Simulated assay, not measured.
Amino acid sequence: MLKQISLVVLLGMSASAMAGHWQAKVGASVVAPTSDSKVAGGALTVEADNEWAFTPAVEYFFNDHISTELLLATPINHDVLVEGKSAASLKHLPPTWTVKYNFKNKTDFTPYAGIGLIAFLPWDESTHGILKGTKLKVQEDIGFAGQVGVSYQPKAWNNWGAYVDVRYAQLDPKVDSSLVDKFDLDIDPLVYSFGLSYKF
């Protein structure tokens, strides 16, 4: 399912390359989970920690107002905390696709807002601490994503610009463990991003 959705998105973006403008972004993000999970009948609290990520992105502008953006990332290494202590780790990729409305105006600042989808692609799960010796498998997930931000592109910078934005993602991947019953790992992160852009 995730591969099919990714293919549709990429084909759609490729087909649109006949017109409009492309923009490349190079930035960094803080991935900050906002939720946690109660397991073992509510006796234990499980949560993911905050992490930094390098997050390049590519954006296509259909016109001055409508664009679509694909946020990518280098692999993110998340710690999983049980009762506040690190007990597992995993790597994942969070490709995020949004359709955006850009509030173009007469200033150099352009606010924008978008909605779309985020995928959660985990691998390389390992356990330690309280979970050492147990098996852990985190499943793929896909959820809705929302985005608000602002770009800054003064004429003196030619095609260069800067941006800051924040995304909210609905992510609750299922976790299989040999210690407790299957549960949803409630992550639901806020993703704070900033960086530079270049419009072609």
Results as ranks from 00 to 15, higher is better:
Lys3Ile: 02
Leu179Ser: 06
Tyr101Trp: 06
Glu47Leu: 01
Ser197Glu: 11
Ile115Ala: 15
Asp184Thr: 12
Asp186Asn: 15
Gly114Trp: 00
Glu47Gly: 02
Leu117Lys: 07
Leu81Met: 09
Trp22Asn: 07
Ser35His: 11
Glu140Arg: 14
Phe183Leu: 04
Tyr198Ile: 09
Phe194Trp: 13
Asp79Gln: 14
Asp176Trp: 01
His78Gln: 15
Gly12Ile: 12
Phe144Asp: 05
Lys91Gln: 12
Thr74Ala: 14
Ser89Leu: 07
Val58Gln: 02
Glu125Lys: 06
Gly149Pro: 05
Gly146Lys: 00
Ala17Gly: 01
Pro122Cys: 10
His65Tyr: 02
Val9Trp: 00
Val99His: 06
Phe120Asp: 07
Ser193Tyr: 05
Ile187Tyr: 01
Gly114Glu: 10
Trp157His: 01
Gly143Arg: 05
Thr98Gln: 00
Gly12Pro: 00
Tyr192Glu: 04
Asp165Met: 07
Leu11Tyr: 07
Met13Arg: 07
Leu190Cys: 00
Val148Tyr: 01
Leu44Trp: 01
Arg167Lys: 13
Lys104Gln: 15
Pro122Thr: 10
Pro95Gly: 08
Thr134Gln: 13
Tyr101Phe: 07
Leu93Met: 09
Asp181Asn: 13
Gly114Pro: 07
Gly41Gln: 06
Gln139Ile: 01
Pro33Asn: 12
Lys104Trp: 08
Tyr60Pro: 03
Leu136Glu: 07
Gly195His: 09
Asn158Glu: 13
